[in-house]
């Protein structure tokens, strides 16, 4: 067994175990923290694959942004120190069934798909390459989707401002 395989299994184990803990923990804040570790584990797998940019974005967006947002909303809304009530068993059973079905489907797909090994060099994932592809207008460029997404984000930002903006009290 090579060193990188060991590292992969360690990262995978960390991701899976903390994901399991996130759904099974009875304390909301702990669940959020375990979810965070799960997300960091995924970022670790990206690093392991040498997709550094994706890994860094994963950390910025999910671990640094969304997890913090979740934790904040827990702080502000829930009685975060108390244990959640136990779920009733039928609900538990159905959710377990749903999870198992999803797992089975994924496994089935993985085993049925024939992965073809390639001798080509790995995809060039440096920031430079990503940037030129992202704004490229040629065959492999993503200029249009990029601009559409940025328009969407701009619209979201303006929407946030409009929602958050307090209308001025009418002066009489």
């Amino acid at each position: 067994m090579k060193g990188e395989t060991i590292i992969f299994y360690m990262l995978a184990a960390m991701t899976l175990v903390s994901a399991l803990l996130a759904v099974s923990s009875r304390q909301l804040f702990r669940s959020a923290v375990y979810l965070l570790f799960s997300l960091i584990g995924i970022a670790g797998i990206y690093f392991w694959l040498h997709y550094e940019f994706v890994a860094a974005v994963q950390i910025v967006v999910y671990a640094g942004g969304i997890a913090v947002l979740i934790i904040f909303s827990i702080f502000l809304t829930q009685k975060s120190g108390e244990e959640l009530p136990k779920q009733n068993s039928t609900r538990l059973m159905f959710s377990a069934l749903a999870a198992l079905a999803g797992f089975g489907l994924t496994i089935l797909q993985v085993f049925n798909y024939t992965f073809i090994g390639t001798k080509d060099a790995a995809v060039d994932a440096t920031v430079m390459a990503i940037g030129t592809r992202m704004l490229g207008m040629g065959k492999e460029g993503f200029a249009l989707p990029f601009e559409v997404v940025s328009m969407l984000l701009l619209a979201a930002m303006i929407g946030c401002i409009v929602i958050a903006m307090r209308s001025k009290p009418e002066t009489t």
């Binding site: 923290v33 965070l36 960091i40 550094e52 940019f53 890994a55 860094a56 974005v57 950390i59 910025v60 671990a63 640094g64 942004g65 997890a67 913090v68 934790i71 440096t126 920031v127």
Partner: peptide, 19 residues
């Protein structure tokens, strides 16, 4: 190769420890 982005990404984890 993502140098400074890596720094900003990792340093955003600091807040987790504090929380």
């Amino acid at each position: 190769n993502i140098g400074v982005l890596y720094i900003t990404a990792i340093s955003s984890l600091n807040v987790i420890a504090i929380l």
